[in-house]
Amino acid sequence: MTVIPYTHWAYFPDQDSAQHCATDLADFVTRLREQEDGTWLLLAGRDVDTAELPERHGMVEAIVQRYGGAYDGGEVTYLHGKPVADPLITDEESDR
């Protein structure tokens, strides 16, 4: 079993729909950020077994779509050569 920190990305037309989606992703660390165009970015991160990634993508995408969002996939972000689940906490540039 290989566990990695993984962050899903989703965009929403408004803050309310992004917040409701984040509530449904209770087992994730979630962050909301307003974009320059007025849409809202939801980042949802957690440690996941790499064998479960396809299933997790499908689950997160379904929840995002339920709230009118657009799922944009996910990634592992590296900081100083180490994977981090929540790059927004660090306030540093990542090695993406």
Rank of each mutant, 00 (worst) to 15 (best):
M1G: 11
T2R: 08
T2S: 05
I4H: 02
I4Q: 06
I4G: 01
I4A: 10
T7L: 03
T7V: 04
W9H: 12
W9C: 01
Y11V: 09
Q15H: 11
D16F: 02
Q19D: 13
H20N: 13
H20K: 13
C21P: 12
T23P: 02
T23V: 14
T23I: 14
D24W: 02
D27F: 09
D27N: 13
F28S: 00
F28Y: 15
V29L: 08
V29A: 12
V29E: 14
V29K: 11
V29R: 12
T30Q: 00
T30A: 01
L32M: 00
L32F: 00
R33S: 12
R33K: 11
E34K: 07
E34H: 04
Q35L: 07
Q35I: 02
E36M: 05
E36F: 01
E36K: 11
T39I: 02
T39W: 05
W40A: 01
W40R: 06
W40K: 03
W40H: 10
W40E: 04
L41H: 07
L43E: 13
L43C: 08
A44Q: 02
R46F: 07
V48D: 01
D49N: 10
T50V: 12
A51H: 07
E52T: 10
P54W: 07
E55D: 06
R56D: 03
H57K: 09
G58F: 13
G58K: 10
G58L: 14
A62R: 07
I63C: 04
Q65V: 02
Q65W: 01
R66E: 14
Y67C: 03
Y67A: 04
G68W: 08
G68C: 12
G69C: 09
G69F: 05
G69A: 10
Y71I: 01
Y71Q: 02
D72L: 12
G73L: 08
G73W: 10
G74H: 11
G74Q: 08
G74A: 08
T77N: 08
T77A: 15
T77M: 08
Y78A: 14
Y78N: 05
L79F: 10
H80D: 14
H80E: 13
G81Q: 04
G81Y: 15
G81A: 13
K82Y: 11
P83G: 13
V84I: 15
A85E: 15
L88Q: 13
L88R: 13
L88D: 15
I89D: 15
I89E: 15
T90R: 05
D91G: 14
D91T: 11
E92F: 10
E92T: 13
R96Q: 10
